[in-house]
Design a protein around this nucleic acid. Structure first.
Lengths: 218, 218
DNA sequence: TTCAGTATTTTACTCATGGTAAAATTATTT
DNA sequence: AAATAATTTTACCATGAGTAAAATACTGAA
């Protein structure tokens, strides 16, 4: 059947709008009740529809969850990749600045939407041990991998250009990523469900200075 | 009703044996299928009994889980507390040794039973965001708190005795705990379900050296 | 405007799983 | 051997993810 282009357009807009409504409701409910506690019926009710309609837009609860945090992790990957490019094209004069920038990327990503970031943490925690699957979930994992590779490339390039001491690249990358991740979790758990721990920034800063002392030759 | 002491004894032994069988089966199944994937029926089948019998010994799945990892976290708390006592009673001559010992405690706890440790990580991850409750779970949380306090006391005492530089105690403690925790998770996620990541030890060592450089005055 | 065809949404389910009440079984004391 | 107490199992409930099919709303052509 042929359809008028104007109509096709409107339909696509409506679909996007509904997708947005679902995501918005999902975010709200999941923030309130955490992933496990948020039921699909809750989310549907929040969006003013019924459960099966959600399944018209998202294949599973996991994929809905993944779609929610996708923009955040994409932005993270992009920012890290930008630093990588800058290091590789010799834009940086000091290793210190690289480390500061990397930590700022982490922190900015967190600060720009702490609620969403909290969901991101939950996604990693739940996803890793409750065997999630599905297209969207794989996508997130893939982008996560990109973050990791960007991190490795940054360290590797910085070492090659003499901006960092001759450290072991995988160990350093694992340490940076792992410590950031762990600190965020610890602060979040200590602080509870609402708001940002006021300690997060200073503790990350502490780690940043530690790394600078260890990695940068003066 | 009065019972002969020998019989009472045997009954207690039988109860302990069954408890042990359930825990063993639970460990096996949870390692295979992770917490969420392990059903109570699975565990019961593994122990050669039926589900309701488990509920005779453990109030909820959460408590069964908690009972599983309790010995591990108690041992961790004890070891940290021993270091605390040693620092406070001036047994340590160097800050370096303190940091090495703390990291060894972490690593030994992990190495003595990696499978159990993996469950411990899952427990934290799942428990934190799937609102666990119950007596046993509270107990775990309480012991976790003890670990944290021991850590703080160690740093605080070491600073007071001039073994560490004058660092901010909460920030330092959060960093040490968080980075350890994050690194374990990152390595575990990278390495997958089976075995220990060969990177864990070197990455922890990396962090250890970083901390020594930052905290210890030479 | 009305009808045939299509897309979307909802009603009314299924299935899996944590947890439980009550029946059945086994053990213990007299 | 009968009475009683403890333990285990059978048969169930409640909840929540996911789905088939009915119902509704929308689109294009006459």
């Amino acid at each position: 059947m042929h359809r008028k282009p104007a109509v096709t357009d409107r339909i696509r807009r409506e679909k996007n709008r509904r997708t947005g409504e679902i995501l918005q409701a999902a975010l709200k409910v999941m923030l309130e009740k955490s992933y496990t506690g948020a039921t699909m019926d809750d989310i549907a009710a929040g969006a003013g529809i019924t459960k099966p309609t959600i399944y018209q837009y998202f294949r599973t609860k996991d994929e809905l969850f993944a779609a929610l945090i996708e923009p955040l992790i994409i932005s993270l990957a992009d920012k890290l990749d930008a630093i990588r490019t800058a290091v590789e094209s010799e834009k940086y004069k000091s290793g210190k600045k690289i480390i500061r920038d990397v930590y700022n990327v982490y922190y900015d990503t967190f600060e720009s939407d702490p609620d969403l970031f909290r969901l991101f943490v939950i996604f990693q925690q739940v996803g890793m041990n409750a065997g999630m699957s599905g297209v969207a979930v794989e996508k997130i994992r893939e982008i996560g991998g990109k973050c990791f590779i960007a991190g490795q490339s940054i360290v590797s390039a910085a070492v090659a250009r003499g901006l960092f001491r001759k450290v072991d690249v995988p160990h350093t990358t694992d340490f940076v990523w792992g410590s950031f991740w762990g600190i965020v979790q610890v602060e979040q758990n200590k602080w509870g469900r609402d708001g940002i721990s006021p300690y997060l920034k200073p503790v990350l800063k502490f780690g940043e200075n530690l790394l600078i002392a260890a990695l940068v030759q003066d």
